[in-house]
Design a protein around this nucleic acid. Sequence first.
DNA 1: AGATTTATTTTGACTACTCAAAATAGGCCG
DNA 2: CGGCCTATTTTGAGTAGTCAAAATAAATCT
Lengths: 220, 220
Amino acid sequence: MASSTVENYLKHVLLLSAGGDGLVSMGALAGALAVVPGTATTMVKALADGGLVEHRPRHGVRLTAAGRRLALGVLRKHRLVETFLVNVLKMDWAAVHAEAEQLEHAISDDVLDRLDALLGHPATDPHGDPIPSRQGQLDSQVYATLATCVADKTLRVVRVTDQSAEFLQFVDQTGLLPGTALRVASRNLAAGLVTLKRPGARPLALSLAAAGNILVAPAR
Amino acid sequence: MASSTVENYLKHVLLLSAGGDGLVSMGALAGALAVVPGTATTMVKALADGGLVEHRPRHGVRLTAAGRRLALGVLRKHRLVETFLVNVLKMDWAAVHAEAEQLEHAISDDVLDRLDALLGHPATDPHGDPIPSRQGQLDSQVYATLATCVADKTLRVVRVTDQSAEFLQFVDQTGLLPGTALRVASRNLAAGLVTLKRPGARPLALSLAAAGNILVAPAR
DNA sequence: AGATTTATTTTGACTACTCAAAATAGGCCG
DNA sequence: CGGCCTATTTTGAGTAGTCAAAATAAATCT
């Protein structure tokens, strides 16, 4: 398994390569990791040996497919942990980053999946940063889910992410198909409930887990 | 801050010093940490330099007050994390030990306090092991085991002391979880067997060795 | 093109932790 | 008491990651 040091290098290469051509300079990487440039060079060469990055000497570093997969996994852990700390443990918005920095390296995939379900499969963390999917998709087009969006805005269902037969049947029967306009009447995190209001229909209560599988956008 | 390695050494010295005079042998410590004896010696000398343990060469090692304080903090984290994983994330009884082993070193005191509150300040973890208080008090009540108590009293399981996944799974499947009421129907020392009777369940035979890992108290 | 600035890489050294295997000390048994 | 068995310690060496500072390559600016 990758050490936390390796995970940190990969995560920061991913974050720094967001804009631009994907090549990250040694200086930027060293700065982000709070190490001297020589250390970053040494480490990047080791990562390149391991096939996790491509190193173009004196030019920069870029993730390979394998490195990107790992980096996205770390980012997913980081952002889901942040969301947990804020939504469940009610921690300060500003304090959670440092906490997550530690926990992202200690949490297993199993625990992560359960956390994800508990939180209702959020699309973004409390700061609005998109959370990579389990499969490593990082949506640049970010939608809110019914589990995370604020009350009283008029919304439109855009996508249903749980493909299980039972859930799709439920969505069909309750008329929550993509395109439906609705409004979140209330959210009760303690009870794990979301109440929806649709024009010309009875209010509908939904578990947070279920609501997390329904992506919405502001109604045009 | 103490490294996870240091935290692990201290935690295991604490756990191993439970019985006996508090002196832990190098062999036992090395075994618990899965390192060769020479490594344990080297590390213990470093801990002694740091004032966390007292090293009596060729005799053993014991925690200082400072070391004990740290070790109890780690144990508190471990057991609260286990409780969270089982009670909130509904994880398997037998799997949480390994998870907690990682998380205990990554979780801050702030997060721990909030977890503690969320769980309702539990006194024991899911295995029945006592959780040290925030101030470092460890409830060390002595319980009888199923291997030693007399027949025909009504008892209640309070704690399971073998943390191996196999044993925990067995306990789970046979329904001997902490809280369960039962009665020792017979003890056969020659055969090394204990037979249990539970209300509404079939009698269950157990080896003395296994029975020794299940702590019980008189049912109120 | 030549000189200078700036980023990067190299080199040598250090800390923390580990193992393998040789050396040693304690306890015990006759 | 003397010898042996066993646990412990020592020694020498290796891995992962780091820094300080010298060497080098790239880019820029006359």
